[in-house]
């Protein structure tokens, strides 16, 4: 049984089909990258896996650890181990970051039948993980993503991922809006999470991110389908020639 198996997926917004028969299989522990030009449906795919209500699935299936992912609500998907690091993390004015993380963590523990953490246990866990990614107390006191710079938002997304310990991580344009220093911090944060039981799907325009996080498999997505798959050399080829050959 594959870890994640997408078969003949057709999906879009309203009647506009964006994903047009996509197949993708990811095994446990693998890092996959999907590259593709603007408008090829990369971000749509990540939103559909996570369960964004704006998208409609017309056909096909997504199995995650053998479970029918499409029949689950977004929170059930998250608690089953799916994590989407957003390209543009949503700002939540009035919702404190620490409280948000506590609610999310305890929701997952409850879902898994584990005991919820009390305030002291939670703070201890929060501080340990935060320090590793350079997340300050001051950032945790702010409302979720409000007043954060582009780099800080991506750091907080990575931190949430490390904190919630998902086993399938989707990184949607993780490198957009990051300078080299921030990109390094974020990639280091992701690389330490690479473990045999955890898989990653990276969505990106550029090969740059792949220099920091080496993928096992690279896919090219054009017009809602994966048109070619290969190893890292495929990304290097694209960097040189662009997507012209695949349009």
């Amino acid at each position: 049984m594959a870890f994640l198996e997408i078969k003949d997926l057709h999906a879009g917004i309203g009647e506009k089909e964006i994903i047009k028969g996509l197949n993708l299989t990811i095994e446990k522990g693998e890092v996959h990258a999907i590259m593709g030009p603007n408008g090829s449906g990369k971000s749509t795919l990540s939103n559909i896996i996570a369960g964004h209500p704006a998208y409609t699935v017309y056909g096909g299936s997504i199995l995650f650890k053998g479970k029918d992912l499409l029949s689950l609500s977004p929170d059930e998907r998250a608690n089953s181990g799916v994590f989407l690091a957003f390209q543009y993390p949503t700002e939540l004015p009035g919702v404190g970051t620490a409280l948000f993380l506590k609610t999310a963590l305890n929701a997952k523990r409850k879902f898994l039948g584990e005991k919820e953490l009390d305030a002291v246990q939670f703070m201890k866990r929060l501080k340990t993980r935060a320090t590793a990614l350079g997340i300050t107390d001051e950032m945790l006191k702010r409302p979720v993503n409000v007043g954060f710079s582009g780099g800080e938002k991506k750091k907080i997304e990575t931190f949430q991922m490390a904190f919630l310990e998902p086993d399938f991580c989707i990184l949607d344009e993780m490198d957009s809006g990051l300078d080299i220093d921030a990109l390094k911090v974020v990639s280091d944060g992701i690389n330490v999470m690479r473990e045999p039981h955890r898989s990653f799907l990276m969505i990106t325009h550029y090969q740059r991110l792949l220099n920091y996080i080496r993928p096992d498999v690279v896919h090219i997505m054009v017009d809602g389908r994966i048109v070619r798959s290969g190893d890292m050399s495929l990304a290097l080829y694209l960097e040189e020639k662009g997507y012209e050959d695949y349009r």
Partner: peptide, 20 residues
């Protein structure tokens, strides 16, 4: 969706946003 994508169910997510 952001709250739900972090494992918080719709009812609790709604209450969090209304409280905010």
């Amino acid at each position: 969706f952001y709250l739900q994508s972090r494992g918080i169910d719709k009812k609790q997510a709604t209450q969090i946003l209304l409280k905010a």
